[in-house]
């Protein structure tokens, strides 16, 4: 795990206290991003002791000037990192799962982007565990990660549950 250190600038963002927890920010190019932490309590099995803490990270451009493709923007990545930080400050036991969308075969680019966000985290405060799964039939690689606070007392059990899930030992609904 590496860290880029403390970013110098972020976009102003707003937190909407609803379910799922939602954040919004607008970039200098008037592109509006929405970040959601979607509860997925069943992921490690219905009776998992961590069920109430598991969320899936979903990020979407919800508004952009017509015809504008979001350009590379140096402030977006630290903003997303700051939002995830903020969410952990509200709920330190959060277990964040990120699964790269592979349906359009652009999963590798998404994974690179995800890693760029993560580079802005303080490495001391979080622990991350990555897994890839290869689909032998369609020859597609799936990239997955779990992020937890380094202070989470259940981190070993959480990583073990994540491993069991992606080893195919769990049968999540």
């Amino acid at each position: 795990m590496k860290s880029e250190g403390h970013p110098s600038s972020i976009y102003s963002y707003v937190f909407i206290d609803q379910e799922p927890a939602t954040y919004l920010f607008r970039t200098i190019n008037s592109i509006v991003y929405e970040v959601q932490f979607k509860p997925t309590p069943y992921l490690f099995g219905e009776h998992s002791p961590f069920a109430d803490s598991i969320v899936e990270l979903v990020l979407k451009v919800v508004d952009a000037p017509t015809g504008v493709r979001p350009p590379r923007d140096a402030v977006t990545a630290p903003t997303i990192a700051a939002i995830i930080n903020d969410f952990y400050e509200r709920s330190s036991q959060t277990i964040t799962i990120y699964i790269c969308d592979s349906s359009d075969k652009r999963q590798k680019a998404r994974w690179t982007t995800f890693n760029r966000w993560y580079d802005y985290f303080s490495a001391r405060n979080y622990q991350r565990f990555d897994r890839t799964v290869f689909d032998n039939v369609e020859e597609v690689t799936y990239y997955c990660a779990v992020i937890i606070s380094a202070e989470n007392p259940h981190r070993l059990s959480i990583f073990e549950a994540f491993n069991r899930l992606l080893d195919g030992y769990n049968d999540p609904k």
């Binding site: 979903v58 592979s102 080893d167 195919g168 030992y169 049968d171």
Partner: peptide, 24 residues
């Protein structure tokens, strides 16, 4: 087990796309 995991991940991605559409 690999087939089970891949099915699970495909389903998660379908759900994620639905969530993204709902966000918009």
């Amino acid at each position: 087990r690999n087939t089970r995991v891949v099915s699970f991940l495909k389903l998660r991605i379908v759900e994620k796309r639905k969530a993204e559409r709902r966000m918009v």
